[in-house]
Amino acid sequence: MQANALDRYQTGESLIHHLDPRVKVVVTVLFILSNVLLPDGAWLAFALAWGLILLTSGLADLGLAYALKRSFVALPFALAAVTVVFNLPGEPLFAWKLGPWHLVATDTGVIRFASIVIRTWLSVQMAILLTATTRFPDLMHALQHLRVPQLLVAIISFMYRYLFVITDEAMRLMRAREARSARSASGAGGGSVAWGARVTGNMVGQLFLRSYERSDRVYNAMLARGYNGQFLTINPHVMSASDWTIGAGAVAILVLLQAVGRMAVL
């Protein structure tokens, strides 16, 4: 596999790319927080929040639809919220008989459902932009500066480095299984579910052993290169004046967004 097949970073030299990763992480989290805090049915504020996403993607030279195209990952989960349509007191919109159940959709229910889906959809888009404009090691440095425990950051950094290697190994196992398994045209495989699970379990066990042994080699190779438990960086990540300005500007916009959201509902 190509090393960058999993990585979502889009190389660029834009304003957003050069922003300090701490600013990007904090603003992204605050943006998501702001979405959660906006009241149900604050359509104008939701639209403005999407405008902020478009502005960010424009400034990042990604093209306006970049985040939109990738933002549908979280939508299947919306099913978990569908029930709220029938479950809040309010003006009945339509009733629906389904076997023994009598479902009544209310206006407050529909508004809450739409708001939940929009909040999720906006939040996912901003997180996509964060990953697309920030190298993963920079993201890790940001987390370290933001007081995430060093041990956890170190493990996640290692995980990221070996993600590609180990998923490659997993793909090789799956390819080997495919090559040795017949499959009918309908796509149905032979054998029972328990048998399929046992084969899969053997593959998982095999993958574990290979990973375990590889981690030994990794450690020895790192010792040979002077590893003493510390990670060094040649990028010191110093907050510049423009980082502070852009960060403060973004926070101000989010505060404004909250004001708009609350006024629109009142």
């Binding site: 290692f158 180990i166 981690s215 438990g229």
Partner: peptide, 27 residues
């Protein structure tokens, strides 16, 4: 500090192991 590479690689293992699947009824 020896355990850090081990846990990092094994975290990658869990991630990769979640991809290995097998067909159950109904697609």
């Amino acid at each position: 500090e020896r355990q850090i590479p081990l846990m990092g690689v094994l975290a990658a293992f869990i991630f990769a192991a979640q991809m290995i699947n097998f067909p159950v009824a109904g697609g």
